[in-house]
Structure formats: structure tokens, C-alpha cells
Simulated scan of single mutants.
Amino acid sequence: MTHLDHTRLLASGSTGSAVTELVVPALLLRAPEASWSQLVHVYVPSGPTVAFSGRDLRSPGIAAATAVAHAAGFATVVRSPGGRMVAYDSGAVVIDHLDRTTGIEHAGSATFAANAESHVRVLRDLGDLDARVGEVNGEYCPGEYSINVGGVAKVVGSAQRVTATGSLFSTVVQVSVSPRVRAVIEDVSDALGYDLRRSSIAGVADHSPGLTADVVAAAFVADYRERLGMVDGKVPAEVVAHASVANGVSPFHVDDWTRAHPAPTV
């Protein structure tokens, strides 16, 4: 690895299709060189996506779950970070935080806790939201550091991937949960054999009407800019171009493709 630039870049806007959006951070994570120390990408997804994890692939119901998602019009992708399945569309906000200064020794609950507390503060500032850190009973993709509203419904979930070249901390903020997203979370969870309390599915707009994905995305961009002293930039165009040709069988496996098609220098 070359000398690491301490630039912290903040980018926004979708990079393309559901596959491209999930391949880009995986490529950036594995790139052997980078001209930045941290890169945060905040975007509203381009279309309906079911993002599986490696853990989901071990379920005997994965074929049925993939078929259910396809029938509902969702792209199916196996993302790089862990956790369990999450579904979203353009009513959500995704935040990918890449950090070249951290490694395996920094992985763990402290990273989840710090990010959750920061994200809770952003949501509370957006409106009259009783946002809290903690898992609620029967939530999808359960996690100790999920963010809920009122201790009843989950609105934010995060997952992490750490490699020898850094870490990727990915967060999905459900702003407006459409009927199709709700239905696919329910049906895919059933196919995978996961317990789910259906009333635990919600978006922040259910509790603070008027909030939109664009408004929430802008709030997170402003927070990262101020809190981490980030400078506005762009996701490297050569990486986006490289990711845009990614294709394969469904569900598309991000890690398999990125290992076979390494990214250019970023």
C-alpha cells in the first residue's frame, strides 16, 4: 500500500443499479491503494433491492426467498457486510462508511455503538422522533445496535465488513416503507425461516410525517461533514464504471465478483 492520504471524502447520490450500488463499496474496501483515508457515501437507492448476507445463503429456504423477491420485482444481491436480509427501495437511505485506517483489531461492538449513537442524534434532530438504540422484539435483521422508535419498531440497521485493507460500515435507514417493501420483508423472512413480528417494520416517516428520503439523506450528509470534518467529493468514476458491468446468477454474490474482478487504484 502506498502512503495514505488523510483526506476524508463525502459523496452522495446513487451510483447506478442495485448490483452496482453494492459492488462499489466492496471494490473500494478491497482496493490495494487509496488516495483517501475515509470515504462516506450517502445515497437514496435507485430501485427495489433485497440484500442478502452470507448467512442467509446457508438457509435451506434461500432459493424460495430469491424467487419470492424476484416475483415482487426486487433485485437480489448478496452484499459484502454481514447480518441478515434487508429489503429497501427509494424510500430508504443507505450510508456506506469506508475507513482505510481501521483493521481487524478495531472490529466489534464499539464501532456499532458509536455509529448508532451518532445516527440517533441525527434522527432526533429531524423531528419529534423517540429514536433509541437497541433491538426490538421480532425485528428483521436483528442487532443489538439497531435503531428503533419508541422501543417498538425498527427503522435503522447496520452491518460491517473488515478486511486487511480497512473496514466497511453499511447502514440502511428506512424512511418511508412502501407496501411492496413491507410485503417482501415479510415473505422473504418466511421463506428463510426467520421469526418476524410484522409490526416491527417501520420507517421514520411513520412517526414523523413529512420526512422524505432526500431530506434524511441531506441531514446525514451534513452530519458527516461537520462531525468528521469531511470534504465533498465523488465516488471514483473508474470504480463506478468497473462495477457497472458486474453481472452473474441471482442472487448476485458481491464478494465472489469483486475477488475475480479487482478494482483499479482509487
Rank of each mutant, 00 (worst) to 15 (best):
H3A: 12
H3V: 14
T7Y: 09
T7I: 09
R8F: 05
L9T: 10
L9V: 15
G13F: 05
A18F: 05
V19G: 00
T20Y: 03
P25W: 00
L27Q: 09
L27Y: 00
L28W: 09
S37T: 10
V40M: 06
H41D: 04
V42F: 02
V44A: 03
V44F: 04
S46W: 09
A51I: 01
R55G: 12
D56N: 07
L57V: 05
L57A: 08
R58S: 14
S59D: 02
G61F: 00
T66L: 09
V68A: 12
H70S: 13
G73R: 07
F74M: 10
A75Q: 13
A75R: 12
A75C: 09
S80H: 10
P81R: 03
R84M: 12
R84S: 13
A87W: 07
D89I: 01
V94E: 04
V94I: 08
I95V: 15
D96P: 02
H97G: 00
R100W: 04
G103L: 00
G103Q: 01
H106D: 14
A107L: 01
S109R: 10
F112V: 06
A113L: 08
A113I: 06
A113R: 13
A114K: 13
A114N: 13
V120W: 08
L126Q: 03
D130K: 08
V133E: 02
G134S: 05
G138S: 02
C141Y: 06
Y145H: 14
S146K: 01
N148M: 05
G150C: 09
V152Q: 12
V155S: 00
V155Q: 04
Q160K: 10
Q160S: 04
Q160I: 05
Q160Y: 08
R161N: 03
T163Y: 02
T163G: 11
S167A: 15
F169W: 05
T171M: 06
V172M: 06
Q174K: 03
V175C: 02
S176W: 05
V177N: 04
V177R: 01
R180P: 06
V181I: 14
A183R: 15
A183V: 05
I185N: 13
E186M: 08
D187A: 15
V188K: 02
G193Q: 09
Y194N: 12
D195G: 15
S199R: 13
S200K: 11
S200Q: 09
I201L: 14
I201K: 07
A202F: 10
D206C: 05
S208R: 11
L211N: 06
T212C: 11
A213E: 07
V216Q: 05
A217S: 15
A219W: 09
A219K: 07
R227Q: 13
M230K: 00
V231L: 12
D232L: 12
V235M: 10
A237W: 07
E238H: 13
E238A: 15
E238G: 08
V240T: 10
V245H: 12
N247C: 14
P251D: 11
F252A: 03
H253T: 10
V254A: 04
H261G: 10
P264G: 04
